[in-house]
């Protein structure tokens, strides 16, 4: 065991994506083994396969580093955990949009939309054959333990805790104000709303993508609070299910503005093991 850890730790520390892949794969495994999602295996295969294939094309044509395949794997896993489709063709389309969008929709060398988010939203809008099941994870305090503990160490590694807390804190405050203070429901209703597995998955694994959040810490906080506000309005006023996904899509379009207003160094994935620390990676 200690021997395994000796190899595993540097592996995870070398690149935050390693941990992310491990964690997302664990969640998928949990879904398969415990929640009986096994009928969905072909969908996972298509999503992951298409993401990796598209990224390979991008590597060859656009001369991206081969290590970017790790990001594609994360996108594929994220799509697998959130997106449902009627046909496998739709799954392939979502994956193509996700990776394609990353390569095409760029602002000053940084892609604008979270690839998974873009793939999900456009697949739903364009095909009408895709959907998100916000109830698929169920709801419970245990989920918070799971996602929270899994994600915290990852976030500390990439330094996007501010985004997760900014979003979840703001969203929780808004929901608390409306559900408990205004409508007068008991706290158990609020807890049920906030312990939703899909919301937590979104909080810890999608909105926190260091590549598509604003670079400056202050900008990130404002930005994550804006996503929370939009998500809250979509939930309560427009009554859209899985509103955070749509909110992130809408707010992402403004990310370049946040980057222009607050300037800071851009995030890079791979950090040399014994390198100097940078502003965006406190634990590096």
């Amino acid at each position: 065991m200690p021997d395994m850890l000796r190899h595993l730790v540097p592996f995870i520390r070398r690149d935050a994506r390693h941990a992310q892949v491990l964690l997302l794969a664990t969640l998928l495994g949990y879904g398969l083994l415990v929640m009986h999602w096994s009928a969905e295996l072909p969908r996972y295969a298509v999503l992951l396969g298409t993401c990796l294939a598209m990224q390979t094309v991008a590597v060859v044509v656009l001369r991206m580093p081969w290590s970017s395949l790790k990001s594609a794997l994360i996108t594929g896993l994220g799509l697998s955990l959130l997106l449902h489709v009627g046909s496998l063709l739709t799954a392939a389309l979502a994956a193509v949009i996700a990776i394609g969008g990353k390569c095409v929709l760029r602002d000053r060398g940084k892609h604008i939309f979270n690839p998974g988010n873009l793939g999900i939203v456009l697949a739903i809008l364009l095909t009408g054959d895709a959907w998100i099941s916000p109830g698929q994870w169920g709801s419970g305090a245990l989920l918070l333990v799971l996602f929270g503990s899994l994600a915290t160490m990852l976030l500390l590694r990439v330094g996007r805790v501010d985004v997760a807390l900014g979003f979840l804190g703001t969203f929780a405050m808004l929901q608390y104000t409306r559900t408990v203070l205004y409508l007068g429901w008991g706290m158990d209703v609020l807890v049920h709303q906030l312990m939703n597995g899909s919301l937590l998955l979104f909080t810890f694994f999608m909105i926190t993508d260091p590549k598509t959040t604003p670079n400056a810490p202050r900008a990130r906080l404002a930005w994550s609070m804006l996503v929370a506000l939009v998500a809250f309005l979509l939930t309560e006023k427009v009554r859209i299910q899985a509103a955070p996904i749509w909110a992130l899509f809408l707010v992402s379009a403004s990310t370049p503005l946040f980057d222009r207003m607050w300037k800071a160094a851009r995030f890079e994935w791979s950090i040399p093991l014994h390198g100097t620390s940078s502003t965006t990676t406190p634990l590096a």
Partner: peptide
Amino acid sequence: PGSMLWLIGLAALVFGAAVHIAA
């Protein structure tokens, strides 16, 4: 799923702590 969640959550905590200590 409840008991499984506990197990996975616990495993993750232990794993996280181990990584920190090792780091």
